[in-house]
Amino acid sequence: MNALTFTLKNTLQFSVNCGALTPDNLANKSAADIAKIKVTYGNSTVLAGDLFEISGNDAAHIVFKNASDKMDYIGAHMSTGKITVEGNAGAYLGFTMKNGEIHCLGNAASYAACNMVNGLLKIDANVGDFLGAGSEGLRKGMRGGTVIIKGNAGDRVGDQMRRGLILIEGNVGDYCGSRMIAGTIGVLGSVGVYTAFNMHRGTLLLKNVPTLHATVQYCGTHTLPYLSLLFKSFKKYNTQFSQLSSQRVQRFVGDAAYKGNGEVLILNA
């Protein structure tokens, strides 16, 4: 069986909602049936076959070729299988993803892993703002799963994140871990200002010391035994985080303005 492949025919003028094109929805459907699925394109509705060349028959592995940053909601609500995005992805990549794996070979726009529940999301390049955050109006962001970013991330990474793991090899913008409820965010590059703003609980694992605001308090340098468990869990991923071994960290706790018990750990102290 060959991967079910959607090749974009022409450059998109508007955003297209790809939320219907998931392994869950396309299982046991023929290419002809899939071509007749309606997708939202701009403010109109078109058939999937109008936008994509469709080939292959294994809906458990879907490939988007020539993918564009106007392709939103790729892998939305998916609970099984794998999606490979050859190119860039639009906003809401892996929206409310419940399980399975998404691998984006290019960049992804804002709100990737938004409301994510479980599964694995890998992005080989950069990602926009609100990675792992909650969608508008929700009080909780990402609730589980693992996100690995090889490049940089924008502002508000993990905003209101409730659970799960985000590993970023590059730099991140401002307000990293803002309003974070729990979970773990690792960043090997630099972080912007207002890191851990209004953080409740959870862990920010940073390589470089950020400029922290006054309500994130320094608690000294320590050897934390639980880091061996955490680092062991990183080993199965192809990421620079797999190389971490030192349990010696500087520990900051906050955000005191919120009576928060979150922690910012600076590696290799």
Binding site: H222, Y226, L229
Partner: peptide, 25 residues
């Protein structure tokens, strides 16, 4: 006493309890 924190790692929940020698896991 409220300073305890949990970590969910590989599907298992661990508790970190601050004690005088560091942390009890």
């Amino acid at each position: 006493d409220g300073f305890q924190t949990s970590k969910l790692i590989d599907g298992k929940r661990y508790w970190r309890i601050p004690v005088m020698d560091g942390e009890f896991i």
